[in-house]
């Protein structure tokens, strides 16, 4: 990927700012999401909540399903590949989708290396729990970042932890004398040049969305007020009682995240949200956010 292509890929993410990207498992879901005002859909076979329940190895979805979803919507289509599985990424690039999510929600294919994303023309989004992880992914060629949160739980606590960590480390970096950056970068696993760029910009150099556990309009607005540029909702929509209504409510609350009256209005009468999971009740081996290196 040359610099120009990379910039175009970063810029597509810029177009998605202030919007909601929704997980969909069928073409019918994709239409509902588009109708509700999603800015993109994430096409997959199982939402994270089901991956969690069913267990086993979670892989890239059947390309036929992704192609079918691509055929029914005009908004961008994203799909997930396993961490480090660069051939799954080659397959999705051939399918000409719009964005690849190298995702911890699927079972990692490589426990040491992420995909060298600079080898691709297609853009990648990657998850992060802290600034170091975000910058390592950018160094590998990611054009967009999202918090990992804890997918499939309907519990926003981990996503909040991750954005607060990114924000805290950004503020530390901005406020420290430049000679301290080398040590800080070493201790926290930051690529040095990118650490300097964050220090200069006062934020990540690419768009950063919230993901992992967002289930209500208020969750979405919370993540926006904490400084995220937009929202991914995974299981939160299609595992709720009234997906169409909830999807539109989350779109409204994301657009007007600073307007409590509009968030209130969006929150009324949505029916049951997805069932939530307490993070401390999840066995350590089933925590998804720790996947990634």
């Amino acid at each position: 990927m040359d610099k120009k292509r990379y910039e175009l890929n970063v810029q597509l993410a810029q177009m998605l700012k202030g919007g909601v990207i929704m997980d969909v498992v069928t073409a019918e879901h994709a239409k509902i999401a588009e109708e509700a005002g999603a800015v993109a859909v994430m096409a997959l076979e199982r939402v994270p909540a089901d991956i969690r329940t069913e267990g086993g190895v979670a892989r890239m979805s059947d390309p036929a399903l992704i192609a079918e979803i691509k055929g029914v919507v005009s908004i961008p289509v994203m799909a997930k590949v396993r961490i480090g599985h660069f051939v799954e990424a080659q397959v999705l690039e051939s399918l000409k989708i719009d964005y690849i999510d190298e995702s911890e929600v699927l079972t990692p294919a490589d426990e040491e290396c992420h995909i060298d994303k600079t080898k691709f023309e297609i853009p990648f989004v990657c998850g992060a729990r802290n600034l170091g992880e975000a910058l390592r992914r950018v160094a590998e060629g990611a054009a967009m970042i999202r918090t990992k949160g804890e997918a499939g739980t309907g519990n926003v606590v981990e996503a909040v932890r991750h954005i607060r960590t990114i924000n805290r480390e950004t503020r530390q970096l901005v406020n420290m004398p430049v000679e301290e950056v080398t040590g800080f970068a070493k201790d926290n696993g930051f690529p040095y040049e990118l650490a300097l760029q964050v220090r200069k910009l006062g934020r990540l150099p690419v768009v950063n969305f919230a993901a992992g556990g967002i289930a209500t309009p208020a969750d979405a607005a919370l993540m926006m007020q904490l400084g995220c540029d937009g929202i991914f909702v995974g299981s939160g929509i299609f595992k709720s009682k009234n997906p169409a209504k909830r999807a539109q409510a989350i779109v409204k609350a994301t657009a007007y995240y600073n307007d409590p009256a509009k968030i209130l209005e969006a929150s009324i009468g949505l029916g049951e949200a997805m069932p939530g999971l307490e993070i401390s009740d999840i066995p350590e081996t089933q925590i998804l956010a720790t996947r990634g290196w």
């Binding site: 177009m15 998605l16 588009e34 908004i75 539109q248 779109v251």
Partner: peptide, 15 residues
Amino acid sequence: PGGESTCLFRLLNIF
């Protein structure tokens, strides 16, 4: 601005 027209379409109408 640029963005997703279907999303903007909805929001323009709703609000």
